[in-house]
């Protein structure tokens, strides 16, 4: 219970796990991400099973271009780094730095999301509609679900930033920022797998 922790000498070293609420959020978030992993695994399995099924429509090696995907990867990986820096600032009780790093995270995430919107628009433009083939459906579903997660994460972090813009770090909001950053890392890890399994595997000829 938050009122049991003595904060008269400043925040404790791990403000996100100092209260029982914080501990619960920490564990609950990890368990939730465990479930999310299995859900994404199912969509990965679907994609791997159906990626040959182009049914005369555009094939992946005609469509995918590594430069764009590289740019997206850079956006997302960097945003993951800035969210780590944000959490480190939180542990040092440096609210202004944390706020700034999370803001950069949101901007980089928006950059990624913009690229993804462009990518989908482009594929659709060159003939890969959602219903063109099983490959198209499973590709859009897997990558689109990841994109939806990015969007949700952006909304989450933005809400936290707006809510706590001038409030400083407290034992109540530290677990919230921490959970959001865990979620953000998870999205990032899923992207690493998408990058490998969806793009590299296809272009590498496997």
């Amino acid at each position: 219970m938050s009122d049991h922790v003595d904060v008269s000498n400043g925040l404790p070293a791990n403000p996100e796990k100092s209260t029982i609420e914080g501990k619960n959020k920490f564990l609950g978030m990890w368990v939730f991400l465990g479930g999310e992993t299995i859900m994404f695994a199912t969509f990965f399995g679907t994609f791997l099973g159906l990626r040959e099924g182009t049914a005369g429509g555009p094939t992946p090696d005609e469509l995918f271009s590594l430069p764009l995907v590289f740019l997206m990867t850079m956006f997302l990986l960097t945003s993951s780094l800035t969210s780590v820096l944000g959490i480190i600032s939180m542990k040092k009780n440096n609210f202004k730095a944390m706020r700034m790093y999370f803001l950069v995270t949101v901007l980089l995430g928006l950059g990624f999301f913009g690229c993804e919107v462009y990518e989908f628009w482009h594929y659709n433009h060159v003939g890969l509609g959602y219903s063109v083939s099983a490959f198209a459906s499973s590709f859009y579903t897997l990558v689109g679900l990841h994109g939806a997660h990015v969007l949700f994460g952006l909304g989450w972090i933005t809400t936290l930033l707006v809510r706590y813009w001038g409030k400083g770090i407290t034992l109540a909001n530290a677990p919230k920022f921490y959970s959001a950053s865990l979620y953000w890392h998870f999205i990032d890890v899923v992207w690493v797998f998408i990058f490998t399994v969806v793009y590299l595997l296809t272009l590498g000829g496997a």
Binding site: E36, T46, T54, A55, Y130, S131, V132
Partner: peptide
């Protein structure tokens, strides 16, 4: 969570013409 994924595929098939289960379309 796999059920959620499966139901999503079924929904996408039914509402948005997803082709996951149509052999003709791969």
């Amino acid at each position: 969570t796999p059920l959620a994924a499966g139901l999503a595929l079924l929904m996408l098939d039914r509402l948005f013409m997803g082709q996951f289960f149509t052999p003709d379309m791969g």
